[in-house]
Design a protein around this nucleic acid. Structure first.
Lengths: 234, 234
DNA sequence: GCGTGCGATTGACAATTGTCAATCGCCGGC
DNA sequence: GCCGGCGATTGACAATTGTCAATCGCACGC
């Protein structure tokens, strides 16, 4: 299957017991027997950049956990535009609204190739009732979504475009242990910051000229953390 | 006690059994005996505009429900400014982070005189475990916070200042059954929309000149819903 | 009644950002 | 190799928004 395909690729049944990010995600604290007791299938998906996990308004049947990669939550605006309201990384949970409503509130689209677990809502709802650890983890994940949304308001939607971009780069940079990190397109940056694609492009180009970020064909090389921080707090 | 005081005024112990908004709030579905079984005190507060329910970073010991009035959640920015990230009205729950963390994430300040119940976190945590209805209501409230935050991103932080203001007025207007509704200050409108106080003032003044909103000394009289909607979708 | 103070409004100007269009660079298909 | 397409960049200009300062209006205390 080609990269940039629209649908995630099914890899197999998830092996939660040996999952390397299990402790970060919903099922931390569950014993192996408890994991075995899950009847419905938890699927392990690999999704290329561009793949859509679900679409805004579609019936919500599953919750997802991100094991690697980067996922965006996008909302379509009445005037035809779109706004990205969340960036989700390993350890984050996607589509919690499936547990209390019957429709997804956003479109979830993969930004960087991702490994993702798809968990039927019934599984989570049952574990929520039977396992205090899962229950607590669920509340924490929900609060995490609120915190992330708040951060989008205060950091990525406040101040000058330049300051917002600096904060976005810092936010993205936090995840950069791997140097194969690829920047979002200028269009996505615009949708993240509530500015136009052209303004996003201008600012990035200017940052590069000023030596604040270094990249090669969109791939991250390095950045001036200190100067970016200064801009972010202006 | 004078209006605009800093602290809420204690009215008495809450009578949840006869609360007129109980069915909207956390304890819908609880029977009277179950309510009686609550050992710790749920206080009924009356707070004037300007009162602070809690401050960002303070130890989080209680969850609040809004029974009447209007409450804002404010965040202090590193550069000295501030941003309002939520507006809470009757039926909304404030300070849920108390259930999974030990600090409040915002400052909660009353915008319009409000009746508010203060519920110790232990009470909510216990009911969450013993009552499936409360548990479900809790998840729904959390999701509602996420939805409200998303709305702040997509509606109040996207597009031109004029369009944002139109959306804010529509948002505020939804609550206007009572004509004693008072508009937020221009400063608060600016903090709500991520624009300066002056720009907020200019837009409101222009709206009034164009007959889009009618007010008298800050009190709402009426508005041109149709034209506001047109601006909101532009 | 009369200052006083605070919030709202307005003006003038600068800076930022959006709009529209052209160009550039790169990658993949043929 | 060459062409076509797409995303990034840039230019020119208009529109919006921020900044700084002055003024206005109104409520409040004395």
């Amino acid at each position: 299957m080609k990269p940039n395909c629209t649908n995630p690729e099914w890899i197999g049944r998830a092996k939660c017991a040996v999952c390397d990010v299990r402790n970060f995600v919903l099922f931390a604290g569950l014993s192996v027997p408890e994991l075995d007791a899950i009847l419905q299938p938890i699927d392990n998906l690999h999704a290329h950049a561009g793949a859509m996990l679900y679409e805004q308004g579609a019936p919500a049947s599953s919750v997802f956990t991100v094991r690697s990669g980067l996922v965006k939550l996008k909302v379509d605006l009445p005037n035809g535009g779109q706004r990205i309201v969340r960036l989700l990384r390993p350890g984050d949970v996607v589509g919690l609204e499936a547990l209390v409503g019957d429709r997804y509130h956003h479109s979830a689209i993969v930004l960087q190739d991702a490994d993702i677990c798809r968990i039927p809502r019934e599984v989570v709802m049952r574990l929520d009732q039977t396992s205090p650890q899962v229950h607590q983890a669920l509340l924490q994940r929900w609060q995490r979504s609120v915190d992330q949304a708040d951060h989008f308001i205060t950091a990525l939607s406040t101040g000058s475009a330049e300051a917002r971009m600096a904060r976005l780069l810092i936010m993205l940079g936090c995840t950069v242990a791997d140097s194969d990190f690829v920047f979002p397109s200028r269009e996505d940056m615009g949708a993240l910051l509530g500015i136009t694609t052209e303004t996003a492009s201008r600012i990035i180009a200017e940052f590069r000229r000023r030596g604040l970020v270094h990249m090669d064909k969109g791939c991250y090389i390095g950045c001036d953390q200190h100067e970016l921080s200064r801009l972010a707090n202006s």
